[in-house]
Amino acid sequence: MSLDYVKFTPGFEKFMPKEYRDMVDHGPFGKKTTVSQMGSFKEVMEEHPMCAGCAMTLFIRLAVIAFPNPEDTITVGTAGCGRLAISQAAIPFVYGNYGDQNGVASGLSRGLRLRFGDKPKDVVVMAGDGGTADIGFQQVVHSWFRHERFTTIMLDNEVYGNTGGQESGMTSRGAVLKMAPLGKKFDKMDMVGLAKLAGCAYVATVVPNNPRRVESVIKKAVLVAREVGSSYIQAYTSCNIEYAIPTDKVMEDAKTVENDRYAFSEYISDEAKEYLAERYGYKEYLPKPAAAVAALADKA
C-alpha cells in the first residue's frame, strides 16, 4: 500500500527474478502510465493461467493499467475465472468467499479511510457475473444502497465459465449452453438500471474492443469512488470456451455484441461531474457558462 512495498530489501536485489526487477525499475508504480504506452513499460500484471485469447484477461490487463494509483489500490475478488489473472498482479488482492466480495470491500474501504484519512486508497472489486449478479447480489446491491465508496466491476461473460457452462442471471434469453441445453428462459438482468436506482454515482457499460475507452471509464470510476459514492462498471468479457468463439475472432464477437446489446453507456451524477471537474480537471464536466447554455437553448 505504498511505493515502499515493492522495493528491494538492500542486498537482495540480485536474488530477485528478472520480472520483479523490471517491475521495480520500469513498472508503473509512482508514474502515470497510459494505454498508449503499452508495450514499453513492465506491467503490474504477470503471466497467468487464463485461457488463450480470453477477453476477460484483456479487460483486466487494461483495468490494472488504468488504475490512477496502482500503488495505493487493493483489488477484491471472488471465485470465478477473473481472480486467476487479478491475483497475478503486484497489487494486494483480497479473495472473498463466494459472493461476499462487496461486504469485504465495504469493511476494507472504511478501515482504510480510518487508517489513512484523506490520503486516497482505492478499493476495486472485480468479480464475474455470477459473483456480482447471482450469488453476491445481496451484498452488491446493499453496498450500493449504503453508498459505499469503492468501485465494483462486473466481468460479464454471461455464463459460469469455469464450472462447465451453467446459465447466470446475466446470460441472454434463449442462450443455449452446455449446462443449459434448453436455452435460458428469462431475460438478462438489468444491473445497470439497478445500480442507478440504488444511487451509484458512476455507472458505465463497456466492451474491451476500445482500450482507451476502458481506460477512461476505469479512471473515472475509481476517482468518483474516492469521495462521491459507489461506482459500477459492467464489462462484456466473452467466454470463448463456453460460447465457442474462435480465439482469433474474440474481438469480432466483442464488436458484434457491442452493436447488439452492449452499447457504450455512461451515467455520471451531477455531484460526481462537479467533483471530477474541480478536483481532477475533467474539462468536459465543467459547468457551461450561462451565455453558452442560453445560445444552445436558442438553437434547440
Binding site: 498508449s36 503499452m38 506491467e43 487464463m50 480470453c54 484477461t57 490487463r61
Partner: peptide, 16 residues
C-alpha cells in the same frame, strides 16, 4: 500503429 500491444490478452507479450 501499436494496436497489437493494446489488444493482446497477455501482459508484456507484444512489446514495442
Amino acid at each position: 500503429c501499436k494496436l497489437c500491444t493494446q489488444y493482446c490478452p497477455e501482459a508484456n507479450t507484444i512489446l514495442y
